[in-house]
Design a protein around this nucleic acid. Sequence first.
DNA 1: GTGCGGTTGTGAACGATTTCACATATGCGC
DNA 2: GCGCATATGTGAAATCGTTCACAACCGCAC
Lengths: 225, 225
Amino acid sequence: MSKRPIPEATVGRLPVYLRALVEMAEDGGSVVSSETLADASGVNSAKVRKDLSHLGSYGTRGVGYDVAYLIHQIRRELGLTQHWPVVIAGVGNLGHALANYKGFGERGFEVVALIDADPKKVGEKVNGLPIEAVENLPRIVREHDVAIGMVCTPGQVAQEVADRMVEAGIQSILNFAPAVITVPDDVSLRKVDLSIELQILAFYEQRKAALDDVKQGRAKTMAVV
Amino acid sequence: MSKRPIPEATVGRLPVYLRALVEMAEDGGSVVSSETLADASGVNSAKVRKDLSHLGSYGTRGVGYDVAYLIHQIRRELGLTQHWPVVIAGVGNLGHALANYKGFGERGFEVVALIDADPKKVGEKVNGLPIEAVENLPRIVREHDVAIGMVCTPGQVAQEVADRMVEAGIQSILNFAPAVITVPDDVSLRKVDLSIELQILAFYEQRKAALDDVKQGRAKTMAVV
DNA sequence: GTGCGGTTGTGAACGATTTCACATATGCGC
DNA sequence: GCGCATATGTGAAATCGTTCACAACCGCAC
């Protein structure tokens, strides 16, 4: 399969291109230029071309890219041609929402089990799936051949749950808990932190306010740029 | 305030450091070395030192950083010493979960209003807050002085909602909808895409599987690394 | 088959970020 | 005070990512 490694930054954008391409296909588009795809993906065309060139030369000079073919190639590259069973640990607000999220199924991800440490929740059904005890993880992973786990617990127990997942044989973890967790080298780990994103926005928001102050001569400290 | 601009990558890590530091403070720690903070944040110590050096020289050579002081400085830099009212548009699974999420309040973010286009939902209360009609956005933004909006709608209407937010005076948008949205230059925009993260994990997962195949001589194509 | 407008693919320049490595500074014991 | 162990702050090097700019190529018209 992969000859030269695809840069991380590119991997992060492929799903975005894919989504744009699928929409175009649904709207009946059959070829697309890097320029058009770039606009639909919120990046610039040089980046699109570089990114796509890492997959191979699937475009046609003077014409553009065949939408259907490109969709196929990106899907293949991302591994979306196969079925990915996932398990969610921690069925609080967020776990609940993720268990019901439609966007996963459309892309080949299927939530096959829900785990929660709270005995009161065990047995309860969410979106048709029963919540199970943590002890069942190894069995679940084995039976459904689960490779990916999502941690949606409170931060305090995130590491513990992740350890259990790794022990049960899970290979990739997506961490939604507000905590840093560590896993062995051979396990992939990514995180989504809702409040971090807000804090980043707050930073830039504050900076904008500070700049406005300067413009209007309201600055307390600071020399102008 | 800011003399030299702080690199984006650094801004993205400050909230992580902050969380680690707050935990340390709660556990009674009073000074911390870049090495320890790095471990708690999942990065390396050189990065921590470079990052913190952008805020100023708040450490003491031979000793480390004063936890409480550093917390204060990072908070100030991120703008977390002030109160940030936020509004959520789209009260589906995810919007619901976010409206109930406790992690925001702890960091100075307060959800002050919920918006939904569905007339059937309007009036319903979530976490004590009534769901309101989109038409109320300008009033809400004005009355609560809202600067930040979160878009949790389906992808198809995300752009429309974002436009409404911008029109109403919102300055920063956090987009959870699976769609690319564009905003004027003076509005900040960040996105969180749940299924993109899964797709990235799938990519690396697939690559691991391919590598294992090679090791075991099961590869179809491909020369060894 | 020649010319032409359009678009890719990609070296090379540029910019941002990470890492290295060490001079510089501190606290402490004596 | 002096020396030692420790840890920061930061130039410089290395790496990674983006953008530029253009040669190579395609499809089409004539």
